[in-house]
């Protein structure tokens, strides 16, 4: 962990980041480009990823992935462990910058801005592309301060009234307001696991992102808390584009409109969720969703 962290210093000053390149470099392992089955394009794309490759040192973790993230839809990334779905997710808001050995090539655009270009400010990018993590990670602060953290660092509120409004609205949207409105000053770490995760979602919403990335957001929660988060994801779809990595195929089927199946760093198949689950076109997809492996 230690050694990974220092890369962030550079990541925060994109102008001096030498490691990231937008030029298409030839892959060292020169694997033949795999053609994804299905249509990788979305109707209203916000993020477009083209020919994305990620290397961890010599390991080619993501190979030639093309995928769009569309407005008002949930796209689920599924696949066996180590297939690269989380790595791909973390490319979308440059969280991979914190890993020193990681190198990203290809092109990822947020609307028409290349997020790996030298002009892109990582701070602004992450405000626009928010992230919810696998394990609920509220800060050791009060519930209020947890939600107000993002608006404060980005200067989104002019005074306390505005900040109060943002906090309330975010907690309401995350479906947590009624449970915590009387104890906003209590520490966020005192909430239950499911409440903590909704607090983290509220915290992410509070900076008004356009895209929300969720990395297995329910894997540490019980079924009831999971159901609440899933309902919440469905509501949030009205305003945001959501990318969710999940190990649960039922969850993917329940919450997503599109599903992308990753296998060994390749995007094998992508399409409408009901088609992927009822009528997979690739053998590997079929084997995975019918539970033959993974």
């Amino acid at each position: 962990m230690r050694m990974f962290r220092q890369a962030t210093a550079e990541a925060m000053q994109p102008a001096t980041t030498p490691r990231q390149t937008t030029a298409r470099e030839p892959a060292p392992s020169a694997a033949p480009t795999y053609r994804t089955v299905g249509d990788h394009r979305a109707a209203n794309p916000i993020i477009t990823a083209r020919d994305v490759n990620v290397y961890y040192g010599d390991k080619h973790a993501i190979q030639h992935v093309n995928l769009d993230i569309g407005l008002n839809e949930v796209i689920a990334l599924i696949g066996p462990s180590g297939c690269g779905k989380s790595t791909f997710l973390r490319c979308l808001n440059r969280m991979n910058d914190t890993i020193e050995s990681a190198r990203v090539t290809g092109e990822i655009k947020l609307y028409d801005e290349d997020i790996y270009s030298k002009q892109m400010d990582v701070v602004m990018l992450r405000a626009r592309v928010g992230m919810v993590f696998q394990k609920p990670n509220p800060f050791p602060k009060s519930i209020y301060d947890n939600v107000a953290y993002g608006p404060r660092i980005h200067g989104l509120a002019r005074d306390r009234t505005e900040l109060d409004e943002i906090v309330q609205k975010s907690l309401e949207r995350a479906g947590l307001w009624n449970e915590v409105k009387d104890r906003l000053e209590e520490p966020g770490t005192g909430l239950s696991g499911g409440q903590q995760q909704r607090l983290c979602i509220a915290r992410t919403i509070a900076v008004s992102p356009e895209v929300i990335l969720m990395d297995e957001p329910c894997s540490a929660l019980d079924p009831i808390a999971t159901a609440r988060i899933e309902d919440l994801i469905d509501e949030l779809r009205q305003n945001y584009a959501i990318v969710i990595v999940t190990h649960s195929m039922q969850q993917a089927a329940r919450v997503s409109q599109r599903t992308a199946y990753f296998h060994l760093g390749r995007l094998i198949e992508v399409g409408k969720t009901e088609e992927i689950f009822t009528n997979p076109r690739h053998k590997l997809t079929e084997d995975y969703i019918t539970g033959r492996f993974g």
Partner: peptide
């Protein structure tokens, strides 16, 4: 201090 707290903060666009 767990790395997940730092990730959470970076994920919200906080600087180092």
């Amino acid at each position: 201090v767990p790395q997940s707290l730092r990730d959470g903060s970076y994920g919200l666009g906080a600087t180092k």
